[in-house]
């Protein structure tokens, strides 16, 4: 009974969930209008959008384990929307870097990315999110068939690179990136555990 209620609550409130996941970007606009982004506003936006991209990636990755362990199928239906919100923050992050931070100085940007491992890793992760966002429609899922799933397994690599990007950019105090890294690996571990459990069950039944 409770499962059904939660299920319909999620399905009926998708727009609300989308609105909530977009709040951090509204906050940035609000702070920007009020000239309240601190001494280094561009760095503030870069940090904020990067962090929220990572958080949304982790939330998206959490949907499958939550569905598996709770048996509430509606969580699976949030994956696409949350994944696209992550892509939205990633785009804001990249645009801030390319436009506000470096003002289209592509020679400098190229050098910056190639020379600095944390940027190279971050940029690679961004490039990988593009095909995922482009193939997120129902039609593309159908067209790609079995290959769609394989392609979208890139999300694990993106997560790994995103955590690495965060870890390498921090100068000394690694507490925060390590915390996000721990959440990422816990989510992976949950998936593996679920698969493993399935195998035990099937061997027992066999």
């Amino acid at each position: 009974m409770l499962k059904i209620t939660i299920n319909s609550l999620i399905i009926n409130n998708k727009k609300l969930i989308l609105f909530i996941s977009l709040m951090p970007s509204f906050r940035l606009i609000y702070l920007g209008i009020n000239n309240n982004l601190g001494a280094n506003p561009i760095e503030f936006i870069e940090r904020s959008t990067g962090l929220w991209a990572l958080i949304l990636l982790l939330i998206t990755l959490a949907m499958t384990p939550i569905r598996q362990h709770s048996g509430i199928n509606a969580f699976a239906q949030l994956r696409r929307m949350l994944g696209l919100t992550m892509f939205f923050y990633t785009c804001l992050h990249i645009v801030t870097y390319l436009v506000l931070d470096h003002w289209f100085d592509f020679e400098e940007i190229g050098k910056d990315i190639i020379k600095h491992p944390y940027l190279l890793v971050g940029f690679t992760a961004f490039m990988m999110t593009v095909p995922l966002a482009m193939t997120s429609t129902q039609a593309m899922m159908k067209r790609l068939g079995g290959r769609w799933k394989r392609l979208h397994q890139l999300v694990y690599l993106i997560g790994l690179l995103a955590v690495l990007h965060f870890l390498w950019l921090v100068k000394k105090d690694m507490t925060e990136p390590l915390l996000y890294g721990a959440v990422f690996f816990s989510l992976i571990a949950l998936r593996i555990a679920y698969k493993f459990r399935g195998r035990i069950l099937s061997t027992r039944m066999g």
Binding site: G32, L37, A39, N40, P41, I42, E43, I45, L100, D101, H102, W103, E108, K111, D112, K115, H116, Y118, W168, L169, K171
Partner: peptide, 18 residues
């Protein structure tokens, strides 16, 4: 980690170049 060829002067706005 950081490019040293240019710098951001603190106190500028969102559209102040490096």
């Amino acid at each position: 980690r950081w490019t040293q060829s240019s710098e951001r002067r603190i106190g500028g706005g969102l559209f102040t170049p490096r």
